[in-house]
């Protein structure tokens, strides 16, 4: 009955050489029962990507609320939001609910449009930001993801190698978590293109 593990899910983001990757599973469950195998947990806000795991209802609420906020930002600024700015937005938005939080663990990934620097960050449900230079994880498989990330990731990965690494990390972690899996989405983000891939995975 822990709100973070009713619906299940996994999300991970990684930094590579002039690129970032973010990936999630596709399962939506209610405890042990799987409701859907097509429930993506990554949302794009311009060139910045947000992964959300946790309580499904809050994933929907948070992702749509942030959509509204980012759209308003874009109208005011006449440009896309940068990952760093978006991270601050997510943080302050979550902290507004300090005493009745959204049960989500967000992950942000993107490349700064001006500097070209890869950027990733993760949060707890209250908005405490965790900046990272290598990888960030979230979801019911976070232990497994930490273990595999820590042993498979290395600095300076090229986009295709980063794709292989993040895919292996997510796949092998998901397979050891009954609440996550059933398909996966992977985004490889470079300065001038984004590649989205759908991974075929075990269906148990």
């Amino acid at each position: 009955m822990d709100p973070f593990s009713i619906n299940g899910g996994a999300c991970v983001a990684m930094v590579g050489k002039n690129c970032v990757a973010i990936a999630c599973d596709l399962r939506l469950g209610k405890q042990t029962l799987t409701i859907s195998n097509n429930y993506p947990k990554i949302f794009s806000y311009g060139d910045t990507y947000l992964g959300l795991t946790g309580l499904a209802t809050d994933i929907e609420t948070v992702s749509t609320d942030l959509r509204t906020k980012v759209n308003m930002y874009r109208l005011r600024e006449e440009r896309d939001i940068e990952p760093e700015t978006f991270t601050n937005l997510v943080s302050s938005y979550l902290y507004q609910r300090r005493f009745g939080p959204f049960y989500v663990s967000p992950v942000v990934a993107g490349i700064n449009n001006r500097t070209g620097e890869p950027f990733i960050a993760a949060f707890d449900c209250l908005g405490c930001t965790d900046y990272s230079k290598d990888f960030v994880v979230s979801g019911t498989s976070s232990n497994q993801l930490f273990g595999t990330c820590e042993s498979l990731w290395e600095p300076g990965l090229e986009p295709e190698d980063l794709f292989e690494t993040i895919s292996q990390v997510l796949l092998n972690s998901m397979d050891r978590d009954a609440l996550a899996g059933w398909g996966a989405h992977v985004y490889i983000i470079t300065k001038d293109q984004v590649i989205k891939r759908l991974l075929k995975t075990r269906q148990d």
Binding site: Q144, G147, T148, L152, S167
Partner: peptide, 16 residues
């Protein structure tokens, strides 16, 4: 929890 999926991957060559 941290080690087992790594072993799945590197010893049993799961998902490879």
């Amino acid at each position: 929890d941290l080690i087992v999926p790594f072993l799945d991957n590197q010893v049993e060559l799961k998902n490879q």
